[in-house]
Write a protein that binds this DNA or RNA. Structure first.
Lengths: 152, 152
DNA sequence: GTGATTGCAAACTGTTTGCATTTTG
DNA sequence: CAAAATGCAAACAGTTTGCAATCAC
């Protein structure tokens, strides 16, 4: 994420806190994650402000909104082209900087004008693999309930 | 989707209706779409049954749960390997049967054990392109409100 | 007959909105 | 000072759950 000057946003303290939190953040946080982190500094912070700011940043392409985690959206401040590795157990998302040849033959395009693409890899992360190997049940996730989407 | 016999499910009329609706369906319907369609035949149909059945089918890998449309999940009865083309305006999803070389160098794997991958292409479908070209505002989507996620 | 499935309502999670108040530039 | 942003509460959208009644095998 570039610096906050020329973003063309009114820089309120709340927004600065959100930007600060997102800066170099590689966790692909959800709105709730951001809210939780930032409301420690601003106890009056509201979700509306989080979503507001995210929308503003998204419109200016300073964050990417990821639709790879089932019910919720996650945000990626790294707008340099890359792909993702998603743990199907704990929903951790890792970045992966590899370029692929994704050209689609005209005949398969169905008249679409393609503007972007992304590759999602699904698998099990080292931590969850360790736990799984011990034969224990994988816990993880909001109060231990499974909540996933996307191929396994 | 294979035939219903050996699926290992109790075949209730509701489930058969859902299976029938999904058969050869290329629209990647949401749970609400399925509910809407099937409750015409079964006015007492409940969402619980739709989600129940989807879960059962998903567990047996007779449908894929797609996490590519922002807040909601969409279901794909075509379990043959393929990728998707998503219209960023109307959220229509088209299938695309092209194989890509998606090998990831060991060093980029971060210790993950990859079990699946998928490529999503974002763009504008022919219909939305036509509308856009006329200079009119693209309507589409649930009561005209924008609701998207994923790169544009 | 028995265990699985249904339907319903209520509870939950995540996101959006309206509006009065405050703040940034 | 005007336009934009905040905070709050209420409204939505999508998904899940508990449980009594019913049904498939």
């Amino acid at each position: 994420m570039r610096e906050y000057k020329s973003i063309g946003l009114k820089l309120t303290p709340q927004r600065l806190a959100i930007l600060e939190y997102l800066k170099d953040n590689r966790e692909h946080p959800s709105a709730a994650d951001i809210y939780a982190a930032v409301s420690e500094k601003f106890p009056t912070m509201s979700f509306a402000t989080v979503y507001n700011t995210l929308k503003a940043l998204k419109d200016r392409e300073h964050v990417l909104e990821l639709a790879i985690d089932g019910g919720k959206r996650r945000y990626d401040p790294d707008t340099v082209r890359h792909h993702h590795l998603i743990c199907t157990e704990c929903r951790k998302i890792e970045d992966i900087y590899v370029e692929f040849d994704l050209r689609v033959p005209e005949v398969e395009l169905k008249g679409f004008e393609i503007s972007a693409n992304q590759v999602d890899f699904y698998g099990v992360c080292p931590e969850c693999r360790k736990i799984g190997a011990k034969g224990r049940r994988v816990v993880s996730r909001r109060n231990g309930k499974a909540e996933k989407a996307g191929p396994m």
